[in-house]
Amino acid sequence: MSKEVTAEGEHPPAKDYHDPPPAPLLGLGELKLWSFYRALIAEFVATLLFLYVTVATVIGYKAQSQYDQCGGVGILGIAWAFGGMIFILVYCAADVSGGHINPAVTLGLFVARKVSLLRAVLYMVAQCLGAICGVRIVKAIMKHQFNAFGGGANVVAPDYSKGTALGTEIVGTFVLVYTVFSATDPKRSARESHVPVRVHMHDPLLQKDRWSKAFVAPV
């Protein structure tokens, strides 16, 4: 195999991207930054809105299709609700907090040294609190339907074992985190990077809903 020959004294082309250094392990210095607290608020609000819209959509679909199997938005509508909300919220929060909106994503980024331990832990706390508040709002607005349909909680689909559901969740969450890493690769343009996340959330949810009712997110 031949190697590419360059003219004498000519330097190889410079990288057209910047690969950031690893994040500090603890990151205690971030406690002094207002941008850190703003990021926590963004994660809280984004996760609250995500759970509010998606859980309300699931409960609404179950209520409408209770007596009419063709009623409601259907599985496709639920998938669009999840994918559409992720697309909107990640696009809005990306420049503030990175738009994690999912403890699995935050954990993956911490393991890859993209965020510090302090940021990862507090992000997860903010996400869980946002999820709780989002579901509580749904319960306050749709109390009767919420109680009747178990809060829209997912269950393993009939004719599938818990092992199959667990495997599906593992694979689906892996694909989600892999997509996030691919979308946030420094070689990509920042504004182009959010599209793959939406595509991932819309397509696999259609398949995963058949087996494990598509949890994907720990919250």
Rank of each mutant, 00 (worst) to 15 (best):
K3D: 15
V5W: 05
V5P: 07
T6G: 03
T6K: 13
E8I: 14
E10I: 14
E10V: 15
E10Y: 13
H11F: 12
P12C: 09
P13K: 14
A14N: 05
A14H: 14
K15Y: 07
K15C: 02
D16Y: 00
D19S: 03
P21N: 08
P22E: 08
P22C: 09
P24S: 07
L25Q: 11
G27P: 12
L28Y: 13
G29K: 10
G29T: 12
E30Y: 08
E30C: 09
K32N: 05
W34D: 04
S35D: 13
S35L: 09
F36I: 10
F36T: 00
L40C: 10
L40D: 03
A42V: 01
E43G: 11
F44W: 11
F44M: 01
L48A: 05
F50Y: 06
A56C: 03
G60M: 08
Y61L: 01
K62E: 15
D68I: 07
D68P: 02
G71A: 15
G72H: 06
G72S: 08
V73H: 11
G74E: 05
G77F: 10
A79K: 06
A81N: 06
M85T: 14
I86M: 11
Y91T: 14
C92D: 04
A93I: 07
S97K: 02
G98W: 05
H100P: 04
H100A: 08
I101W: 00
N102E: 09
P103Y: 03
V105R: 01
V105N: 03
L109K: 02
F110A: 12
F110C: 11
F110W: 14
R113K: 13
K114R: 15
S116C: 05
Y123G: 07
M124F: 02
V125H: 00
A126K: 01
A126C: 05
A126M: 08
L129F: 12
L129T: 03
A131C: 07
A131E: 02
R136C: 14
R136G: 12
I137N: 01
V138I: 11
Q145L: 13
F146V: 09
A148L: 12
G150S: 10
G151D: 10
G151K: 03
G152F: 08
A153Y: 04
N154F: 07
A157G: 09
D159Y: 06
Y160P: 06
Y160D: 01
S161Y: 12
T164F: 09
A165I: 10
A165E: 08
T168C: 12
V171R: 08
L176G: 06
V177M: 02
T179M: 06
F181R: 01
F181P: 07
T184W: 12
D185P: 00
D185A: 11
P186D: 10
K187P: 10
R191H: 11
R191T: 10
S193N: 09
H194G: 04
H194V: 13
H194T: 14
V195S: 05
P196R: 00
V197G: 00
H200G: 00
D203A: 13
L205F: 14
L206T: 01
K208T: 14
R210M: 14
S212C: 15
S212N: 04
K213L: 04
K213W: 04
V216I: 14
A217Q: 15
